[in-house]
Amino acid sequence: MWAWFHKLSSPKYYYEWSGKWLPWLGGLTILLSAIGLYWGLVVAPTDYQQGESYRIIFIHVPAAWMSMFVYMVMASAGFVALVWKTKISEIVVSECAVIGAVFTAIALVTGMLWGKPTWGTYWTWDARLTSELILLFLYFGVIAIYSSIEDKRVAAKAASMLSIVGVINIPIIHYSVTWWNSLHQPNMEIISDKPSMDPSMLYPLLIMAIAFKVYFVWVLFMRIRNEIISRERATKWVKELVTAS
């Protein structure tokens, strides 16, 4: 098992191994999102309170879940990168930062679009919205430090360090923002967590959540492969790969 992980951390082996997975991941993403979107957007009943506009949750909620999940993946990979100094985990950190920032941005934008018809405003300084925005800033920080250090291996280590510091801070930021909000605006009109969600809406949502996860792995694999090729372009195996194709 450990020997396999060790092998996986070599760029060449990883490139070959991940290549086999790509069609499966891509196919599964398309299949799951087709089912989830059809079920969610067409089959699922209209919400009696929010009307049709609630249907954006089939994108919004999975994206919001992913925004946190990707940060955890990034910080874990950062830890591995700092402790075992494997090349692949360094690449995972820098690629996760970009993907995670996009998920966070999608969650924010879809949330705003949903907020306009439901709350009557695109933006409120609600605790969740604010902590999601701060999460986006943290992603920007990781991307910024990665892109401003020229030596990419040093850059990845610095980005790993920052993501680990961020992961300790995320719960603190989250709770501080929650308390801040509850102290200042206690009676804002916010729809709390749906106490019970009807299965006809819950199942498509879960399918979409899985689809987003698979999509993340798919895109991550493709981005890592891309980065491997670009970093290892001087090596023999990449040259052979290019001339062979």
Partner: peptide, 23 residues
């Protein structure tokens, strides 16, 4: 410490540190 080796790390420093100052 993360930006010490960089030239003109000042603006970058704000980007990295200010979100962590929020609590």
């Amino acid at each position: 410490a993360l930006t010490a080796g960089l030239r003109g790390g000042g603006v970058l420093l704000g980007l990295l540190v200010l979100p962590l100052y929020i609590p």
